[in-house]
Amino acid sequence: MHKHLNRYFGLFALPTLIAFSVAFLIPFLLGIYLSFTEFTTVSDASFVGFSNYILAFTENSNFLNALWFTVKFSFVTIITVNLFAFLLALALTKKIRGRNLFRAVFFMPNLIGGIVLGYIWQVIINGILLFWGADITQNSTYGFWGLVVLTNWQMIGYMMVIFIAGINNIPPQLIEAAKIDGAKPSQILFKITLPLTMPAFTICSFLTLTNSFKLFDQNLALTAGAPARQTAMLSLDIYNTFYGKIGSEGVGQAKGVVFFLLVAGLAALQLYLTKSREVDG
């Protein structure tokens, strides 16, 4: 029967494969090629070697600034999002009135799109800064912490759901036995709950990391990089390089390839950590 199935390639796999080639595969390969050329319309590409990659880092400091901003931002959000999400998950796996309603409320912001989120928080953060007569576009520190608050609001509920699933997977007998042996609540937390939710921590950390690394819509709507591109993250800087100035498309594509290598490196690290833990366990 399954040898038979090969004849149905055209029906089962080909349509998806064609769409995949048009939307991803050809653009990806073409993108790598174009990063070594100078072009404005794709068809006028001329080979320039590695000069786009050199220009990406040396033409101005935008890319390195964006990289540093993104790294700082991701570092802070990994800690805050996971900490708050885990605490909420701990609270909401206890017997508490209305806990399903609480869960629903904390999760809800995650469904709202980045552009809408950005403008919601722009109004609120500008409203708060107004007490000091300031504006989010005046200082990159405001933009940084504004993005941190926004991202926390968006992602805490999502990570909370994953932590709740992790905590619910802990066999109740384990905690019962510990209680009978006279373990204090803090001992149960540090010796049982935390170690057994480590897989959830790995998942949530990498989800926060990759989401923070690739953040675009929220960045565009909240600050659009203001003041003077200081709050532009990697995605926004690549976008600005492509569409901000004619003639720098090659540099934009080179930045895109570097960005891809960074994200792929993170994914490889995650795969390695997950696999090695599975072998250990």
Partner: peptide, 28 residues
């Protein structure tokens, strides 16, 4: 091979392919 190719596409950020993809979408 096709399966791994599909899975590979998950880790590629949109900014890497956005310019070429929108040009191709335009042409087609």
């Amino acid at each position: 091979f096709l399966y791994y190719l599909f899975v590979f596409s998950m880790i590629v950020p949109f900014q890497m392919v956005m310019f070429t993809m929108s040009k191709i979408a335009n042409t087609l």
